[in-house]
Nucleic acid binder design. Structure first.
Lengths: 161, 161
DNA sequence: TATTGTTATACTCTATAACTATA
DNA sequence: TATAGTTATAGAGTATAACAATA
């Protein structure tokens, strides 16, 4: 069964849920929205045999060649141990390589391979279409404001954390 | 170690990461922001022995007495099987009750107990402070726009789903 | 037949401690 | 001593199939 057409009143505004009026709390809409983005992006990436995490890693390595694993983990906001299997998978598929740094033999410089760059190029149109579909009807100004709000929330946390 | 003070350029805007300029993609900021909200809210709820999921369920039951489990699962955007342990936990702690519906003996009407309502009341100030901290410096208009954008994204997905 | 709640199960993501090799 | 990457492990959250009781 697909989602019914109900509305629930939330402190952050109405959230469509069923055929009742419910009330929720802030932070809750963010979760729902992220779930939507995550599941839709996963479906989009499936034909390329990529997940959101492996795709994120690939994009960051493509755009930032020579990145260390610890830097990539920080960029992806995950712990270093959790990145190992992600990099393993990309390397096993010959999409990236781990290149020892000559001046610091503890670390790796992560670099995309030709195959990795080609796969990345193939995903671009699909990911763009995915985002355009989800963002349809949303003005550029509203989207920019929403992204600003999210970055501000992230910074507010860091100030404490 | 805490996050360093670097900036990485992303298609959705700059994302602070390390001491390099990186590029990312849309949907990625949402994940980072949700992680922040999730981890901060979890820390806020810990003294009350609640998680985001158990808290969400409690709030929805408080505000919508008599809700069925299937409706609650839909409201929380999770599958019915995954709600069972959440409701089990709340019921075991005598925060809610499962009340058989007389007209449909397959279903339960979920209702908050006095203890559940008291716990919910105790959490209000803490959750409010949590949200005020994360939303500090964000104008009402910007926040409203951001929430509108998120609801729109959710609706755009459903249209396809 | 269909629906409500349940059980079992598996997969993904996340978090922590401890190890190795290098610095 | 400290850092980069790794291993092992455990805990959450999520998704699907199949079942019993009821409609």
């Amino acid at each position: 069964m697909k989602k019914a057409a109900l509305e629930l009143e939330a402190k952050s505004g109405p959230v469509a849920v069923g055929d009742k009026t419910l009330r929720a709390f802030h932070g809750y809409q963010m979760k729902r929205t992220f779930n939507v983005i995550q599941s839709d992006l996963s479906r989009t990436l499936k034909p390329f045999d990529l997940r959101m995490l492996t795709y994120s890693a690939l994009v960051l390595i493509v755009d930032n060649p020579g990145l260390r694993q610890s830097q990539l983990a920080e960029a992806m906001d995950i712990e270093r141990p959790n990145l190992v299997l992600i990099v393993d998978e990309l390397e096993r598929r010959d999409l990236i390589i781990r290149d020892r740094l000559p001046n610091d033999r503890r670390a790796y410089a992560l670099k995309v391979t030709l195959a990795g760059r080609q796969l990345y190029q193939k995903t671009i149109a699909a990911v763009k279409a995915h985002e355009e579909m989800l963002l349809e009807g949303i003005g550029d100004d509203a989207l920019a404001t929403a992204m600003d709000v999210m970055r501000r929330i992230e910074k507010n946390h860091r100030r404490v954390g």
